[in-house]
Every structure is written in structure tokens, then in C-alpha cells.
């Protein structure tokens, strides 16, 4: 790690003030930040430790939303009775992620901003447009088995590695953020930025802005939802492909459906066209597979990750058929 200034404000207001300093970044669980600082991938001059701030550690139910404080630990959210009963995809995406220790540390607000595992991003000796804009992308032409097939660009093919954000993408989610400029609400679909011309910009938060809440709009889709994750080993591994599926069924027919894809895309991915194609259809492995094929129709593959297309399609089938058993 390079030297940094450290400050531990006592209130959100103080935190926002401290974050106004140039280059200051918030830290809570630290599971991504400290890891990447040790690799010199991140070199923040100042850390503002918001981990102990009061008032951001609760999960609350309002009339129309489930509201997660940004400092709720992943492990606590995974165990929350409301999630387990009414939004199993959200609970499963949490407990299938990382390890128990990391889930005890990592916060929900930090987790949605998890950085890519692209090895060329994580090692400063390689070329990486995300780390050093304009330097090139060593993943293209390199080892890219774990990289994205959806939402990539000529400049970056890194995949978004997280799980919970994939489940959030399947629902109507918003995040509340605050900075010295005030509070604002960002639609979840707008939070993560595809690489396009500026892969170094991974999220829509401004300098000094910090997430305070994640709100998921209440929906009957939650009950019959699941998060299905395929990985190289049984646990403590990143997704090769994952799918958050949520259903409202009318008998055998799909009334409403949501599909979030993980491990395969540059950002938490919502497969809207695949959803549209399924609505009004009978849900069978065949129609589910067609939905999967639609979801990956625009996939672009590289030397080692072409398998993510057939795997992703089959993961959509598994997730949908599994969600159906809860409908």
C-alpha cells in the first residue's frame, strides 16, 4: 500500500465533508479496497472510514420497498427473514458469494461496487485500459476464460464478478447516494457503466459521493425467485455463469419474469429481451432455453470464454426451472 491519510468520521455529514478532499474514498468492510491497495491497483491518498457510521446498518420495509442501509453486512442481509421468505434470490446471491468471513466484513453498499477480477487489471505490470486509460487491454489475446461475453468493448472485456448486484439487477432497484452536492437517487441500471470508450469509469458515482441505501421495490416476483451460480468449485469461487431468475406464473404460463446474468457480462446484466420473449409463454425447459439463447444472442466471445454462451444458456434454464418450483 502507498501511504494514505486516514479519517474516521462520527457522522454521515462529517463523512461527506471528509470525502470532499481530492481523491478521498470511502472504506467500510475494506475487502475490495485493501486487497486492491495492496496490489497498488488503487492508490487513494485518503481513506474515510465509514464502517462505523450510525444509521446505515438496518434493513427496513416501507410501503413499497425494502430498503437496505449501505453498511448492512452481506452475512446479515443473507440471513434476513424477509429476504429468505419473500426475495430468496437476494438472500441466495449473498450467501453464495465469497466466504463467511468476507460476508461478515463486506457491506452491501461496497459490494455492489465490487471491482473486476480480471488478472490484467489486478497486476500493474500489464496493460489495462480500466486501470490506465489508453494503455491497451492485455486480456484480449491473453487468458480470458473468466471474461465477459456481453457488454464488452474494444477497450475492455473484464467481467463484473459479483453476485448480489446481479440479483438486484433483476428487480426494480435504486440506490441513494450523498455528496456535498446533496442527495440523489440513481436507478440501478444506471449505476454500473459498460466499458465502451471509458472503461476506467466503472460506476456513475461522482467524486466524493457515497451510497447510503439500496432500495428494492416490492414485487410479487420476489417469492418465486432464485439465484443459480455455476463455478469451478463448489464454494468460494467466482461465477462462471450465474442467473437471478424471478417469476410470476399463471398456471404453467409466465405472467412476469426477470432475468439477471452474472459472471458473463461487463456489468450486472438484465436480459430484457429474453424476459419479453418468455412472457405469456408456457414455461418448459425448451422455452427457457430459447430465453437463454435470446439472452446470449449478442454475445461476443474470445479465445477462452466461448463456453460461457452455452453454459450461460443452460444456467438460465436451471434458474428458471428452479424458480418455477417456488411459484
Amino acid at each position: 500500500m502507498l501511504p494514505f491519510a486516514y479519517e474516521k468520521p462520527k457522522s454521515l455529514d462529517d463523512a461527506v465533508k471528509a470525502l470532499a478532499d481530492e481523491g478521498a474514498v470511502p472504506i467500510a468492510g475494506g475487502t475490495t479496497m485493501i486487497d486492491l491497495m495492496k496490489l497498488y491497483v488503487l492508490q487513494p491518498p485518503k481513506l474515510v472510514d465509514i464502517g462505523g457510521l450510525p444509521g446505515l446498518g438496518e434493513i427496513e420495509e416501507t410501503d413499497d420497498a425494502v430498503v437496505f442501509g449501505a453498511l448492512v453486512r452481506m452475512a446479515d442481509a443473507a440471513e434476513h427473514p424477509l429476504l429468505k421468505s419473500d426475495y430468496p434470490a437476494l438472500s441466495e446471491a449473498l450467501w453464495l458469494a465469497a466466504s463467511p468471513q468476507i460476508r461478515n466484513m463486506a457491506t452491501l453498499g461496497g459490494n455492489v461496487l465490487q471491482r473486476t477480477r480480471c488478472p490484467y487489471f489486478r497486476d500493474t505490470s500489464y496493460r489495462c485500459n480500466r486501470r490506465v486509460p489508453g494503455s491497451g487491454c492485455d486480456a484480449i489475446g491473453g487468458i480470458n476464460r473468466l471474461h465477459a461475453v456481453l457488454g464488452t468493448s474494444e477497450t475492455c472485456i473484464a467481467s463484473y464478478p459479483g453476485d448480489w448486484a446481479v440479483a438486484l439487477a433483476a428487480f426494480d432497484t435504486e440506490v441513494d447516494a450523498v455528496s456535498r452536492a446533496g442527495k440523489r437517487t440513481i436507478a440501478f441500471a444506471d449505476l454500473h457503466l459498460r466499458p465502451d470508450d471509458h472503461p476506467e469509469r466503472v460506476h456513475a458515482l461522482k467524486e466524493g459521493e457515497v451510497i447510503t441505501h439500496v432500495r428494492v421495490k416490492k414485487t410479487p416476483l420476489g417469492k418465486a425467485s432464485t439465484y443459480y451460480k455455476v463455478r469451478d468449485r463448489e464454494s468460494y469461487a467466482f461465477a462462471l455463469a450465474s442467473v437471478a431468475a424471478a417469476l410470476v406464473m399463471d398456471g404453467e404460463t409466465v405472467k412476469d419474469v426477470r432475468l439477471g446474468l452474472g459472471g458473463v457480462a461487463s456489468v450486472p446484466w438484465r436480459a430484457r429481451e429474453a424476459e419479453d420473449g418468455l412472457k405469456g409463454q408456457e414455461l418448459t425447459p425448451e422455452t427457457a432455453r430459447r430465453a437463454g439463447e435470446t439472452a446470449f444472442r449478442d454475445a461476443r466471445t474470445y479465445d477462452h470464454n466461448a463456453f460461457k454462451v452455452p453454459l450461460g444458456v443452460e444456467t438460465v434454464v436451471e434458474a428458471l426451472m428452479s424458480a418455477k418450483t417456488r411459484a
Binding site: Y6, K8, I27, G29, G30, T31, I34, D35, L47, D49, G51, Q101, I102, N104, M105
Partner: peptide
């Protein structure tokens, strides 16, 4: 928790 990803000061 993991003590390698926890700052002592935190």
C-alpha cells in the same frame, strides 16, 4: 473476519 483485509486502526 479476515485480519489481513482489516486495517489495525479500523
Amino acid at each position: 473476519v479476515l485480519s489481513c483485509l482489516t486495517l489495525a486502526v479500523a
